[in-house]
């Protein structure tokens, strides 16, 4: 479905590459969690796929279409096939819930039709169905800024699905939500993707959420893929590789034994860990 080949990105004026030599394949129905420390390049990777960020190296293949190198017009058409969900919801606040959903169809209708809000009846039917599906029936004419965080993210998800996409990109869908709502939103994304056989790449900060909802995990560190495998195989060793020794050991240690995390003996131990376990490439295919 989606294939990344040697994808790289260097932001202008930056010394180091934000992304280097990323090879990744996502098949039909794959739900992939993308984890890694802050600044690892997760958002960059996701935005390179639909070229909201222009990759500087490598290729992006969606089906058998190469997205890198498409002209402006074809790129817009290709973007219709890729739905996107954002951390801060990215709704247009002053527009209604219905308008926010319909904005998912903008790639399919002309300027005047969209400006006059004359969308095809099929689009409107789809919008009402999706609203009901995400649990927001009756909210169509509410202004988007009059909703709670969880409700806003449901609108964000519904907008992405309005595109009838072949691929869903999700950038930290739960980072602005409380733990319970975060779980509900992840469950919703998971169910919707399964219903449609829709492949998804989901940036997550929360390892337990990744474990619970995503069969496959890709770990990114400093712009490189350091792990690609089943989430069931995520153990301390792998997490150390992804997040770096010290942090992860401290977190795990603190959780397990409820000890003060900066006890001298432990610090020495985790430095040793970090030095010992940085293999160059991922373990699984």
């Amino acid at each position: 479905m989606l294939r990344l080949e040697g994808l790289g990105k260097r932001y202008p004026g930056s010394q180091t590459a934000a992304l280097s030599d990323v090879d990744l394949e996502v098949g039909a129905g794959d739900i992939v969690a993308l984890i890694g420390p802050s600044g690892a390049g997760k958002s960059t990777l996701i935005r390179c796929i639909n070229r909201l960020v222009e990759p500087t190296e490598g290729r992006v293949m969606l089906g058998n279409q190469e997205l890198t190198g498409l002209g402006a017009r074809q790129l817009r058409q290709a973007r219709r096939r890729i739905g996107m969900v954002f951390q801060e919801f990215a709704l247009v606040d002053r527009l209604s819930v219905m308008e926010n959903l319909l904005s998912g169809r903008l790639g399919y209708v002309g300027f005047w039709r969209s400006a006059l809000r004359r969308f095809p009846q099929s689009d409107i039917d789809m919008a009402f169905q999706l609203l009901e599906r995400v649990g927001l029936a009756g909210f169509a004419d509410r202004r988007a800024d009059a909703l709670s965080g969880g409700q806003r993210q449901r609108v964000g998800i519904a907008r992405a699905l309005m595109q009838a996409p072949d691929l869903l990109l999700v950038d930290e869908p739960t980072a602005s939500l409380d733990p319970r709502t975060a779980r509900q939103i992840m469950r919703l994304i998971d169910e919707l993707c399964r219903e449609r056989g829709l492949p998804a790449i989901i940036n997550l900060h929360d390892v337990p959420l990744a474990r619970q909802f995503c069969p496959r995990v890709v770990g990114l560190t400093a712009g490189r893929v350091v792990y690609d495998g089943p989430s069931s195989a995520l153990d301390a060793e792998v997490l150390t590789r992804i997040y770096g020794g010290e942090d992860w050991e401290k977190m795990a240690e603190a959780a397990r034994e409820d000890e003060p995390p900066d006890e001298p003996g432990e610090a020495t131990r985790s430095t040793a860990d970090q030095a010992g376990t940085v293999p160059p490439k991922a373990g699984l295919p």
Binding site: L52, R76, A78, F86, F89, A90, V92, S103, G107, Y108
Partner: peptide, 11 residues
């Protein structure tokens, strides 16, 4: 962000 979101829909 909303601008980015509309760009992502192919608008």
């Amino acid at each position: 962000r909303p601008l980015e979101a509309i760009r992502a829909t192919g608008g």
